[in-house]
Design a protein around this nucleic acid. Structure first.
Lengths: 329, 329
DNA sequence: CTCGCCGTCTTGAACGATCCAATCTGGATA
DNA sequence: TATCCAGATTGGATCGTTCAAGACGGCGAG
C-alpha cells in the first residue's frame, strides 16, 4: 500500500512550496508557466487528488448537492424522478459536484434533515422536486440563505427563488392542437381539481388551444384525483354525454384509465397523456414528453451560478415539452 | 447569523474540555454520568452537530456510501432501481450513512470514477447493482480492499464478495406452481438467452416446477433479448405450435408483449411477469415481486457489518420474492 | 541611488475534530 | 500522613488544505 499523496508530497516532488501547488489548483494564473507545468507534471506523476474533507474544512464548501428521492408514490410518475436524478448526477458531475440523496416522510422531518445535512455535511445546495403553495421547506431554506433550486414553479410567487420548470400549458396546448389538426373538434380534458398550480396550468393550455380554434370547451372537461381507476371512471362519464372524439389527460395514469374506458369503441377515441412515462411507452400511449435531462442540467447551471457568485445567470428557466406520438392519437 | 457551534463551544458551555465532549460522543461509557448529562444538555441547547469534514480528516472515514444510478435503460425495469435506491437511502440514513450517486457510461469510466470518489471523497463503500460474469469492477474493488456489496449474485464465484439477491428461481417456480394449481398444464416460459445468470436462474425455476409436477417442458420455452416487441413475437410463435394455456415471463417487458399477442384469444392465456414494475401495476399484469426495500436494507446491513469490523455477519443474503396477483392469471 | 511596486513564491496559522500521553482527583491502603 | 491506583480530565499534536501576510529580486520613476 503506497502512502498517501498529499499536497506536500507534490510540493516536494516539484521542489516548490505547498502553497504554490495549491495555487496551481485554485488560481493557476498567478503561477509562472514553467513552475505551473512542473507542478502539473508532479500531480499526474504521483496521481495526486485533492482531499475533499481537508478542502472543505478550510473553505466551508463541500461540493455536495442534496436531492430528495421520494417513496415512489404512484409508481408511474415515480419514474420521472428517476430520469431527473440521473440527469442531475451526470450534469453535477461535470460541474465538479456530487449528488447526495435524502428522504423524509413529511415536511417537518424534511426540514430536520436539512438542518442535519447542513450542520454535519455542510451541503452546498438543495434541489427540490415539486413544491406546493406556501411550501414550508422553501421558506425555511430561503430564511437561512441556503442556495436551492426547485424543479417546478412556486406558483404563488414566481420570483421567490430560482426554479426550472417545463411549460405544461404549452404541452397540453400542443397536444390539443395536434388533435384539432387531425380533424377532431370535440377534444375533452381530464385533469386534477383546481388549486394545484401544475393541474391548472395544464388545463389552461388545453382550454386556450380550443378557444384559439373557436371551439367551446363547455362540458368537455372533468376533474379528479390522479389514478387509473379515476381516469377510467371520468372517461366513461364523458362518453355518456355528448361524447368527445378525443381527450387530453393531465397524466399518464389518467390517460391509461381513459384508454381502458374506450376499449372497443369505434371509431376509436384519441387519447394523449402527460409525462411520457415508461408505461406510456409500453402501451403505445401518446404523451407529452418533458425534457428531464435538460431540466436537470439547468438546475445544476442555476446552482453553480449562485454558488460561484455569478449573479448574471437567469434565475428562472421554462422549458418546452414535446409530443411523443405513437398510435393512440 | 449565530457563530458556528464547535466542540469547543460545547466544552465551554458545559465547563469541561474538548476531549470530554468527544468522549461523550464516541465513548460515552468512560465518562461519569453526571458529566455526560451536563455535556449532552449543552449539545442540545446549542444545537451542536459534529462537523463531518473535520471528523473525516482525522479518522479517514466519510460515512458516505456510493450507489450507481443508471441511464434508465428500458424504462420499465429502471423503476426497480428507483425503489431500491429509495430503500437504500432510508436504511443508510438510519445507520448513520449517506448515499452518494454516481454514473458512468461504461466499465472503464466507472472504475475511473471509483478512483476519483475514493481519492477525493474517501468513500466508505460501494453498492453495485447488477454484475456480470467476470465483472472488472468488482475485481478492481476487491483488489484494493474497498468494502462493497452487490445487489445480484456473482454467478461465477458465489463466495467472491458479499452480496444480496432475490431468489429468481423461487419466483418463477412459485408463478409456475400457481398456474399449475389453477388447472393449467401447458405452462410456457419466455426468457433470455442462456448465459446470463439471472435469466438462467429464472428459467430453471420454471423448469423445475414443471418437472416436479410431472409436466414435460419440451417445446414450451422461447428465448430472446428483453423488450416488448420481442415478447409479442415469441408469444405469437408459441401460439402457432401446440398453444400453451399459460406463460411465465422473465420480465414485465416480455410479459407485456405476450399480453398484446394474446389479446382477443378465448379462453384467455394466463400471463405472469417478473419484477412487479409500475407498468405491471398499471395494466393489471400479475408479476413476481421482489422485496426491494428489504434487499436495500440488507445491503446496508452487510456494509455496516464490514465497516464496523463486525465479521460475524453473514456475507450472502438470498431473499424470497412473492407473487403479486391481479387478473392476468 | 533610493524607493515603491509588481510578480512570484514561501512561511506560519487556522479550519474542527480525534488520538495520545500526561496530569489531576478522590478514595483505599500501608 | 504518605503512597498508590484507577478513573476522569487536560493540553498538545495531527489530519490536508487554504488564507493572510511576508520575502525576494528586478524594474521603472522620482
Amino acid at each position: 500500500m503506497a502512502e498517501k499523496v498529499t499536497i506536500a508530497t507534490v510540493a516536494r516532488h516539484a521542489r516548490v512550496s505547498r502553497q504554490t501547488v495549491s495555487n496551481v489548483l485554485n488560481a493557476p494564473h498567478i503561477v509562472r508557466q514553467e513552475t505551473r507545468e512542473r507542478v502539473e507534471e508532479a500531480i499526474s506523476a504521483l496521481g495526486y487528488r485533492a482531499n475533499q474533507a481537508a478542502r472543505q474544512m478550510r473553505t466551508g464548501r463541500s461540493r455536495l448537492i442534496a436531492a430528495r428521492i421520494e417513496p415512489t408514490r404512484d409508481g408511474i410518475n415515480g419514474s420521472v424522478l428517476d430520469r431527473f436524478l440521473h440527469g442531475l448526477t451526470e450534469t453535477a458531475d461535470a460541474a465538479g459536484y456530487r449528488v447526495l440523496l435524502y428522504t423524509a416522510t413529511d415536511d417537518e422531518r424534511e426540514i430536520t434533515t436539512y438542518d442535519d445535512l447542513l450542520g454535519t455535511y455542510e451541503l452546498d445546495a438543495f434541489v427540490l422536486v415539486g413544491t406546493k403553495y406556501g411550501d414550508p421547506r422553501t421558506e425555511w431554506l430561503a430564511d437561512r440563505d441556503v442556495p436551492f433550486v426547485t424543479f417546478g414553479r412556486p406558483w404563488d410567487a414566481l420570483d421567490a427563488h430560482p426554479w426550472v420548470d417545463v411549460d405544461g400549458a404549452a404541452g397540453t396546448a400542443q397536444a390539443t392542437r395536434h388533435l384539432l389538426a387531425t380533424g377532431h373538434r370535440r377534444v375533452a380534458f381530464i385533469g386534477w381539481p383546481s388549486g394545484s398550480g401544475v393541474g391548472d396550468d395544464r388545463r389552461a393550455g388545453w382550454r386556450d388551444a380550443l378557444h384559439a380554434a373557436g371551439v367551446d370547451p363547455t362540458g368537455l372537461h372533468r376533474e379528479t384525483e390522479d389514478g387509473i381507476a379515476e381516469g377510467e371512471r371520468l372517461m366513461r362519464d364523458l362518453l355518456g354525454t355528448e361524447a368527445p372524439t378525443a381527450v387530453v389527460c393531465a397524466s399518464d395514469s389518467l390517460a391509461l384509465g381513459a384508454l381502458q374506458a374506450i376499449r372497443g369503441i369505434d371509431p376509436p377515441v384519441a387519447v394523449i397523456g402527460f409525462d411520457d412515462t415508461p408505461v406510456a411507452v409500453a402501451v403505445g400511449l401518446d404523451s407529452v414528453s418533458q425534457p428531464l435531462g435538460e431540466a436537470a442540467a439547468r438546475c445544476v447551471d442555476l446552482l453553480t451560478g449562485v454558488l460561484d457568485g455569478n449573479h448574471e445567470t437567469p434565475t428562472h428557466v421554462l422549458l418546452q415539452p414535446s409530443l411523443a406520438l405513437r398510435h393512440t392519437a
